[in-house]
Design a protein around this nucleic acid. Structure first.
Length: 628
RNA sequence: GCCAGCUUAGCUCAGUGGUAGAGCAACUGAUUUGUAAUCAGUCGGUCGUCGGUUCGACUCCGACAGCUGGCUCCA
């Protein structure tokens, strides 16, 4: 895409058949909307390969389009498809195009009293010398570079999916438009298959499963975006943390603990407070200090200024763990022989995300990072980054998560939001590029995605509705060591500046759990499952046998319960299936006599019976090996 | 933060300008059961919160909160 968001001509020529179809369908939808609301003003209408996997068209309209209108729009679209209008391309001069836009003809069914303001504006974005074309289907004329399918009759399997809002050109200062989403396939069968898939995906939504499986809870009295981990969710988190901790021990990390707050000066020094004040919870100021200020008649605005300038001090809920870890590093003399120093912590951080951005576990206001900061020499950077990347790969591999992409997030050369010396940035970006190249998986370089203190390598996954989320991250940072004047004594007996690496394989426990729920559709591998086995006695006569088995399994460290309810076995099984318990152990007369258990796996079904000892050995091995 | 929609019992959802209903869950009893729901009964809601209109509001209007979709943002 070019800077202004338009597809380049090259990109247009590479449009796939399905994109061409969907983009054409956007024109059909615009035509339908105009027949219903002739004064609609259209802006962009591209095909998209995320969210609804179809297209959208941005429109400005007095009437607020709601899902109740979809049927009406679709009915009109059906007519237009039946009319089988040809898409005709017409090359025009810039002046001709501008005249058509000013007369309201572009993006309209006829000339209108007002100009097609967005089309007028879009014309200005077309570079001098580039051909300007108009596509017509029936009465609808649109400024469009195409390409299109031959006729509206090609758009058979379409559906209007949703409506939301969007700022014109993605700028919050611009007009807010209604973005109508639709999807389109070659035929109705393919559309139906797609809609089926969407429905299936919704069943895996972590918010739905999180509630059903009692993993986490949000309470509006506690606060928006503040997660309450229920016992089942906490079990999973604890297992994940144990898993990471084992890897940390293996790779020479030291685990530390730090408080959830720190003085404002700490974050002034790190740059967090001045650079990201808006995304932090407000500072905590001592009550006596506040009362004194109130007596002086200090206004809220004035207080903000004084906090900013440092005249008034306070504490901040930590937005990141790095300053605390930096102070741990700085708490002792460090020799080059001590490096790398690798400090790890499951550190909880707090960020004041905009209310509209919060949702489920993927975007919250308090989350715990599986964080670590590595302090090393310049020479060690590459090996340490590779070590971190290996860790991320190992973590994702153990969980069977292969569907991720790797992004090298670089600074935006035009932005001023970054701290530090550009030369340091160059070095850091270069070392990450090298590391990414040796990773053995494809990656993309994306300017503007860097952290304010340094570039990073991010592991990005998609959720059930196609949204991308950053999980694991490895970041090289030359700047914070500079700001905090960190040093170690080198072999030359002189002080040197260490390089810092930030890394978090999961990213945050909250987001990771959310993604993990959707990845497994709630069927967590046994080592993670909140309930690994449930014993289901055929009748109350076998409750004692069930209890005996339960206690044996518990002794072996298996998370197990017994269902002693006065229900039939079918009902008990159904309940266990819904709870997604890994193994159901059915016990009745046969089993008690032979000291066996009848095993049913939640996905593999009835596995027959075997001796209790054998089952115990098998499940313990499965758990210890963290089998998928 | 912005635009739109939504909020009824623990959960999933009906419902109407004349003060609420189902299924599941929970509880009690009966049943003693062989691989996805045994039967019966009981309990459960100031219809998100606060205001307004009205003789009367769960229903209409407004504000606020939360949720959902998207935009902006995401160190």
């Amino acid at each position: 895409m070019s800077d202004n968001g338009r597809k380049t001509l090259d990109e247009r020529n590479q449009m796939s058949d399905i994109e061409r179809l969907r983009h054409s369908c956007a024109h059909v939808m615009a035509t339908a909307i105009l027949r219903i609301w002739p004064n609609a003003q259209f802006a962009y209408g591209p095909p998209i390969d995320h969210a609804v996997f179809g297209f959208y068209y941005d429109v400005e309209l007095d009437h607020s389009i709601t899902p109740d209108d979809f049927e009406k729009i679709e009915a009109e679209m059906t007519k237009i498809v039946k009319e089988n209008q040809p898409f005709e391309k017409m090359e025009v001069s810039r002046d001709e195009a501008l005249a058509l836009a000013k007369s309201g003809r572009l993006g309209g069914l006829a000339e209108r009293d007002v100009d097609s303001k967005f089309k007028v504006d879009l014309l200005n974005d077309i570079p001098e010398g580039e051909a300007i074309s108009i596509f017509k289907n029936g009465d609808f004329w649109d400024l469009c570079a195409g390409p299109h399918v031959p006729r509206t009759g090609n758009c058979k399997g379409f559906k209007v999916m949703s409506v939301a809002s969007a700022f014109y050109k993605g700028d919050a200062n611009n007009a807010q438009l209604q973005r109508v989403y639709g999807t389109c396939f070659k035929n109705k069968t393919e559309l139906a298959e797609h809609l089926e898939k969407v429905e299936e995906a919704k069943k895996r939504d972590h918010r739905k499963l999180g509630k059903e499986l009692k993993l986490f809870h949000f309470d509006e009295t506690v606060g928006q975006g503040l997660v309450l981990w229920l016992p089942n969710g906490a079990t999973i988190r604890q297992e994940l943390q144990n898993f990471i901790s084992e890897e940390l021990d293996r790779q020479g990390y030291s685990q530390v603990f730090t408080p959830h707050i720190g003085k404002l000066d700490l974050y002034r020094k790190s740059g967090h407070f001045p650079y990201y004040e808006d995304s932090q919870f407000s500072p905590i100021v001592d009550r006596a200090e506040l009362e004194k200020l109130a007596e002086e008649g200090c206004s809220c605005g004035e207080l903000s200024n004084r906090l900013r300038s440092g005249e008034v001090d306070g504490f901040l809920l930590k937005p990141m763990n790095c300053p605390h870890h930096i102070k741990i590093f700085a708490s002792d003399h460090r020799s080059y022989r001590d490096l790398p120093v690798r400090l790890a912590e499951f550190g909880t951080v707090y960020r004041w995300e905009q209310s509209g951005e919060l949702g489920g576990m993927t975007r919250v206001r308090s989350f715990t990072q599986d964080d670590a900061h590595l302090f090393c020499t310049e020479d060690q950077v590459e090996a340490e980054v590779l070590g971190c990347l290996d860790l991320v790969k190992k973590v994702l591999g153990t969980l069977g998560m292969t569907d991720y992409r790797v992004r090298v997030s670089l600074r935006d050369p035009d932005s001023s939001k970054y701290v530090g010396d550009p030369a340091n940035w160059d070095r850091a970006e270069e070392s990450l590029r090298k590391a990414a190249a040796s990773l053995g998986v494809p990656f993309t370089e994306e300017p503007g995605e860097a952290a304010f203190y340094g570039p990073k390598i991010d592991f990005v996954v998609k959720d059930v509705i196609g949204r991308e989320w950053q999980l694991g991250t490895v970041q090289v940072d030359y700047n914070l060591p500079e700001r905090f004047e960190l040093s170690y004594i080198g072999a030359d007996n002189k002080p040197h500046r260490p390089v810092m690496i930030h890394r978090a394989p999961f990213g945050s426990m909250e987001r990771f759990l959310g993604v993990l729920i959707e990845h497994f559709a709630g069927h967590f591998p046994t080592w993670l499952a909140p309930e690994q086995a449930r014993i289901l006695p055929i009748s109350e006569k076998y409750n004692d046998y069930a209890k005996a088995i339960e206690s044996k399994l518990k002794d072996a460290g298996v998370r197990v319960t017994s269902d002693m309810a006065g229900e039939k076995i079918g009902a008990k099984i159904r309940l266990a299936q819904l709870d997604k318990v890994s193994y159901m152990l059915v016990v009745g007369a046969k089993e008690e006599e032979t000291q066996q258990v009848s095993i049913r796996h939640r996905q593999r079904g009835d596995l027959g019976s075997c001796g209790l000892e054998q089952f115990l050995g098998d499940i313990v091995a499965e758990i210890q090996s963290r089998a998928l």
